[in-house]
Design a protein around this nucleic acid. Structure first.
Lengths: 259, 259
DNA sequence: ACCTGAACACCGTTCAAGT
DNA sequence: ACCTGAACACCGTTCAAGT
């Protein structure tokens, strides 16, 4: 933990994870009277609030209220709201089911492991729609993010892609999943806020669009394509798109093997 | 344009573009004295400010100040800040160079057109890093967004993908570009804010990471992969990743033709 | 070591009032 | 038709002070 004065000496610090000093908060006193707060409690409650009410309503004052404390108490444990968000971000990355890529897992089919990691990443983004803007905002170098990135690198390294293409392959797959999960997560959150099902929301938006003058032609093609894809619910349609897109990516990687 | 009272009658409105009444602002009076403001000026200045100072510093009060007017004047032209952002979003989508997919363009190679559209989308995201969170937030049904989506659909429809796979293919390509452009745009913006070049920022972050205990192994693989990819500057490295990733996607689509 | 109260410089938006 | 001033209910953060 770093005081405001220390921070002034390190003005280019770009991440909580690059703090000097104790990484997990200020030194705990050995004294018997336990403090009412700690970083982990603050982070856990932040995640809960962000999930429940969305990032727009998340404030230091609101969070403090939920913890039965004044807003200023929080500043004993984190330097800024930004740092807190970065901590919350890495904390939900802990939910990722990262396949075993070391011992026995190093012999598994890279395609299966890639699918597993992609599916898991997607579901984190959907469960926590506030995560995706933060992934863009921070460096993503917390321990859980790093474990994820490391596993992804190992999996793609075994795909047969030429060495010069592995980072590009990583981009292709995980930026896709990021984009997909972002849009999906926001859609789910919007429906929940509006108090309608995804199918209701979708039907309403499509209806409104069809009435727009000059958009008939565009909608015709869109509907034709949606028809061909099939799927009875919005969730099923999205699922088909995700699966097919992932298969395109895997097929593309296979096509680029050794070139 | 819709008054607060009208809006109350349409509580499920989910986009400025689904407003009832005049789509381009309130009716202009025929009177000779021109008003000092109009929607287009407000939108243009919003884009300028968002580019220059980022979304965190963008406020109705700040914007009004820049336009030489009080904050409340703006509410004559837009219902909420949210609506204004949605308008600004579609406005920068107007910068997209959408290939001709209708007449002669319908015979062009779909790969070339897909690359052109992807490159253009990426560069919009990088020039305007505030765009990417908004793409997640809104429905993206403004006229420029729709033209983009329509062109993308037409291009993918000619790729040889089976009809049921076209929407998945669209996801794969454009969610990838979205994710890539998001991360890239934020990185560029962060460097500008910190007043360092991308290469300096990158070197600093890598250096800090290498010093972290227990991250040696992960960094070794990452550096090996970056070595193999090559590229002397951060921009060049990113360029290689983007190009290769896009070729993976195209190869994947080709592999899925007719299946 | 840990927490608080008051204060500063901000927000988006409403509403009644001006011209 | 278009714009303003005052007001409401908020923000993140600092700082001096309490225990």
């Amino acid at each position: 933990m770093v005081s405001a004065a220390d921070r002034a000496k390190n003005p280019t610090r770009t991440s909580v994870w690059l703090e000097r000093g104790k990484p997990a908060g200020r030194a705990r006193r050995s004294d018997q009277s336990a403090p009412s707060l700690d970083r982990d409690r603050i982070i856990a409650e932040s995640v809960r609030l962000l999930d429940a009410e969305g990032p727009a309503k998340f404030s230091m004052r609101r969070l403090a209220g939920e913890l039965g404390v004044t807003a200023m108490s929080l500043y004993w444990y984190v330097d800024t709201k930004d740092d807190l968000l970065e901590l919350a971000l890495d904390s939900v990355f802990g939910e990722l089911r990262v396949p075993d890529v070391e011992g026995a897992g190093a012999d598994a089919d890279w395609r299966d492991q890639l699918r597993e990691l992609a599916v898991s990443y997607r579901s984190v983004m959907v469960r926590h729609p506030w995560v995706s803007p933060l992934v863009g905002r921070y460096l993503n170098i917390g321990p859980n993010s790093m474990e994820f990135a490391n596993a992804a690198q190992k999996i793609l390294s075994r795909s047969g892609l030429p060495a010069h293409g592995v980072t590009g392959g990583l981009s292709a797959v995980f930026q896709f999943v990021y984009g997909f999960g972002t849009i999906e997560g926001h859609f789910v959150a919007r429906c929940a806020e509006a108090g309608v099902t995804q199918d209701e929301y979708f039907a309403q938006a499509m209806g409104a669009l069809r009435e727009r003058p000059g958009f008939h032609e565009a909608m015709d093609l869109a509907e034709e394509l949606m028809e061909a894809r099939g799927g009875d619910t919005v969730e099923e349609m999205r699922e088909r798109d995700f699966v097919f897109a992932l298969e395109i990516l895997i097929a593309g990687i296979e096509a680029k093997r050794g070139r």
